[in-house]
Amino acid sequence: MQTDIDPRSLIGRKAYDRNGHKIGTVDEVYLDDATGVPEWAAVRTGLFSRDAFVPLEPSELAGDGLHVPYERALIKEAPDFGVGRHLSPEQELQLYRHYSISLPPAPHEVRDFGRLAGQDEA
C-alpha cells in the first residue's frame, strides 16, 4: 500500500475483498511500532458485528475504498482482538499466520556487542 497516505484518511472508507464484495468500513488503523507505517486496519463488518483486522500490505487504496486481496470469509474469520488497544507481538503473529503472510524480518542481532576489538569469535 502507499506509505505516503495519512492513516486517518482511511478511517470511514469502505473495504472490499478480492472479488469486490463489500466487507465493511475501516474503523481504525494500526501503525507499526518500529517504523510508524500503517500496518493493519480494523474493518467493522456490520452494524452489530465485530471489527476484523486486515493487512494494509498488500492491500490497495483505489477510488474511495480499500481493496484487500483476501476472500471475505477469511477476513471475517480473522482473530478478534477488539479495537482501541495496542496489538501485542503475539496478536500480530496470529494475524500473520491467519493471512499466511511471511513474517517481517527480525531486527538484526548485534553479535559483537561487548567484544573487544581484535578478539577472534569463538
Rank of each mutant, 00 (worst) to 15 (best):
Q2L: 15
T3G: 09
T25R: 09
S9V: 06
E90S: 10
G65C: 07
L95P: 02
R115Q: 08
G84A: 14
T25Y: 12
V83Q: 02
R44W: 12
S102G: 11
D33S: 11
Q91P: 00
R13W: 10
P58K: 13
R85L: 12
D51I: 05
L31P: 05
L31E: 03
Q2M: 13
F113I: 06
Q2G: 12
D6S: 06
I75M: 02
R8T: 07
M1D: 05
V29P: 02
F81Y: 07
L103W: 09
L31R: 08
A41K: 02
L93Q: 14
D4F: 05
R72A: 15
G63P: 03
D32Y: 03
E77D: 10
K76S: 07
H86V: 11
I5C: 08
P107K: 06
L61G: 06
D64F: 15
V26I: 15
Q91D: 14
P38D: 11
V68L: 12
L116A: 13
I101E: 05
A73I: 10
I75H: 00
L74Q: 09
I23W: 00
H67D: 10
T35P: 03
G118Q: 02
K22F: 07
V26C: 09
Y30Q: 00
R97W: 01
A73E: 13
G63Y: 07
S102T: 15
V29N: 06
A52M: 05
A52E: 02
H98M: 10
G20C: 06
A78M: 07
A78W: 02
L66Q: 01
F81K: 03
L47A: 14
R97G: 11
D33L: 13
A41G: 07
A42Q: 00
A41N: 06
L74D: 14
A15L: 04
D32C: 10
A34I: 09
S102N: 11
A117T: 10
D33G: 11
P69S: 13
E71Q: 12
D6G: 00
G82K: 05
Y99T: 07
H98T: 08
L56G: 00
R18K: 15
